[in-house]
């Protein structure tokens, strides 16, 4: 029975994934906070009703989607360019390949602290340069218009190497003679990119996209360290809001509701992203069918 061979892995999944998920789902229909003496009391759908009317939640959701969408989009485009470049043969490529991984290898907290200093007003280098350039002090982390861009910037800086690595691995699976055959047929680099690279890279793009979407939708550490959700909670993400509810307000019932809602949402987004990519880069001109990884 093959199921017995899978049992250890399944048990692990059960403990760290399925059990907490059901616990959250269960908690989201209970009041469980300091007021109830941290005892779970069923409250019907009161938590969910509160979520629907919670403007701060909706604001955070919008900000999280903006953060995830912009940073993952930028990351994939940049990662594709970097991967294509690192796939070519040139002197010093191996050194660059190694160096390119450094941002990804840094702990998020450490690199977020670094960026906090870089963006710092009035002591950071960016502030120094904008003053020299005559733009004056921008107060990047203190301005709602700039603070979210700073979070996107730091996220792109850190995770592009990861996406590039996945895409590079994908590029290396494409046989060189496919390109050569198309070149002999009269195809240029652009045609090769569109007809060979992108379709054959699709599983890898999908993999990077799903990984990164799920990860950036649940972003916590980067924002917690870089802005703490400020200014005026304009960079606050859903994960940050759930954290505040659970560990600052000790309202575990409502925090579970936020987590469950975002779980459902990220699952939906991943499915939409998956189907969307099937349509964008069809494997076969005649088929629009969903093809598995």
């Amino acid at each position: 029975m093959i199921i017995f061979l899978l049992l250890p892995a399944l048990l692990l999944l059960l403990v760290v994934f399925v059990v907490p998920l059901f616990r959250y789902a269960w908690l989201s229909f209970h009041a469980d906070s300091v007021i109830t003496g941290l005892i779970a009391i069923p409250n019907g759908g009161a938590n969910w009703l509160r979520l629907l009317q919670d403007l701060r939640y909706w604001q955070d959701l919008g900000q999280t989607l903006r953060f995830a969408g912009v940073s993952v989009g930028l990351e994939l485009i940049l990662a594709l360019c970097i991967a294509l470049l690192l796939d070519q043969r040139w002197r010093g490529r191996d050194v660059v390949r190694t160096l390119a991984l450094i941002p990804w290898a840094l702990p998020t907290t450490v690199m977020a602290l670094g960026w906090r200093w870089i963006f710092n007003t009035p002591y950071g280098p960016i502030d120094h340069f904008t003053k020299i350039a005559g733009i004056g002090s921008l107060n990047i982390l203190g301005d709602p218009n700039f603070a979210w861009i700073a979070t996107v910037w730091a996220d792109v800086w850190k995770t592009t190497p990861f996406a590039a690595l996945i895409l590079l691995a994908g590029l290396q699976t494409i046989p060189a003679d496919l390109y050569e055959a198309l070149r002999l047929e009269g195809g240029n680099a652009l045609i090769c990119l569109r007809r060979i690279t992108l379709p054959l890279l699709r599983p890898y793009i999908l993999l990077a996209l799903l990984f990164r979407l799920a990860q950036s939708f649940g972003v916590f550490d980067l924002i917690q360290v870089l802005t703490g959700g400020g200014p005026a909670s304009t960079t606050e993400s859903i994960a940050l809001y759930a954290y505040w509810n659970a560990l600052r307000f000790l309202d575990f019932g409502y925090s579970s509701t936020i987590i469950m809602a975002s779980f459902v949402l990220i699952s939906l987004i991943c499915v939409i992203a998956w189907i969307g990519l099937q349509v964008l880069i069809p494997t076969h001109p005649k088929s629009r069918g969903v093809i598995e990884l």
């Binding site: 046989p175 379709p199 054959l200 076969h284 001109p285």
Partner: peptide, 13 residues
């Protein structure tokens, strides 16, 4: 040219 590996695009009919 005919390649040893045929060099057919696997995702196209």
């Amino acid at each position: 040219m005919v390649f040893q590996s045929y060099a057919l695009l696997p995702h196209l009919s």
